[in-house]
Simulated scan of single mutants.
Amino acid sequence: MKNNNFKQLLLGIVIGISIAFLTMDIYVRINPTAPAPSNNNLIHKNVTIVENSISEAIEEIYDAVVFINNYSGNSIVSTGTGFVYKADNKYAYLLTNHHVVENSTRIEIINSDREKADAYLLGSDKYADIAVLRVSKNAVKKVAKLGNLENNNIGDTVFTVGSPMGIEFFGTITKGVISGKERFVDTDEITMRVIQTDAAINPGNSGGPLVNIMGEVIGVNTLKFVKAEVEGMGFAIPIDDAMKYAEKLEKGEKIVRPLLGVTLVDIENLFYSPQLKIDKNIKSGAVINNVYDNTPASRAGLKTNDIIIKVNEIEVPNIAYLRYTLYQYNIGDTITLTIIRDGKEIQKQVKLDMALD
């Protein structure tokens, strides 16, 4: 009796093991992606690499780009790139850099069909490095689509269209990513907001478009802010800012920036100005080092050691951001500055009635 029970138990074990192996084999066959049993539990995955192409985006912008010759007398003194940002029934309007067309006696554009036309300079601003040109509508082939910086992020693919080294390399494409969105650089007494990119911006690319993968212009390339010893760091003026300047320059108006009338020190640089006495717990803001007489700042009652932290509720963590924010206002505007004085926040109304020379 005992032998029969033992045989039945042994038979049951054998059948159970066989069913287990059969089940595993069926599962693997039905699910070929299922991991095969192994001692180290390795999992293998199929990876598909897709090549990203910007060819469609290039088609959107390519024929809106022009090559620019800057003449002094009969000689070409500089060259660059520009692009058509709008057109009406008679004229087309182009953006480029101020330094591309500076001191010109004649400006010539060449489109993607190598057709030449004279351009008229409507206005330019050396501080912003922006210039607006006008040509006959028949001289251009396409109008660029304009985007905005806000809808683009760090790491997004961008490319430039330009003519490095001259007309023989017209329409050269260089590709990269947005490396930084809210960069501020100081030049010629003003502060500019710029887009940082690792797309190559070479001589001849100045004034050309920085374009996203939708084929929209998001910036105007400029070499003005680039240091020769730094590689892989290019800059473009955000199209949002460029168009604010273009609206005035197009009408022949001069860009006038308001003067506050102070000298400033960043919180992080206070060790250079030991005479300023600031609470060590304050980590950001622009400290007033000196207030000039008969200026908007003096008339508003600003004082040495005041720390400016806001302009009309916009936080200003440092001097660069303060200047950039200030230059968004017009002569005659009144702004509210939030300052810290003797450990307390107070507000001062400042009428911007003087212009930066």
Rank of each mutant, 00 (worst) to 15 (best):
M1C: 12
K7T: 15
L9H: 08
G12A: 15
G12Q: 14
I13C: 13
A20M: 04
M24V: 15
I26H: 02
V28G: 05
T33V: 09
A34N: 07
N40M: 02
I43Q: 08
V47Y: 12
E51N: 07
A57W: 07
I61G: 04
Y62E: 11
V66I: 11
G82I: 04
V84K: 01
N89W: 03
N89D: 09
N89F: 02
K90N: 13
Y93H: 11
L94C: 08
L94Y: 11
I110G: 06
A119M: 01
Y120R: 08
L122C: 12
D125P: 03
R134P: 00
V140N: 06
G147Y: 01
N152A: 10
G155M: 01
G162M: 00
G166Y: 07
E168G: 01
E168W: 05
F170N: 00
T172N: 05
V185K: 07
D188G: 11
M192D: 09
R193L: 11
R193M: 14
N202Q: 04
G204K: 07
S206Y: 09
V211D: 06
N212I: 08
I213M: 03
M214K: 15
G215C: 10
E216V: 13
V220M: 12
N221R: 12
T222V: 06
P238A: 08
K244H: 03
A246Y: 14
K248Q: 13
K251L: 14
E253D: 15
R257E: 12
P258W: 14
F271Q: 11
L276A: 07
I282M: 09
K283P: 03
I288N: 07
Y292I: 04
A297Y: 05
R299T: 05
N305P: 07
D306K: 00
A320K: 13
Y327I: 08
G332F: 06
I339E: 05
G343Y: 09
K344L: 01
D353C: 08
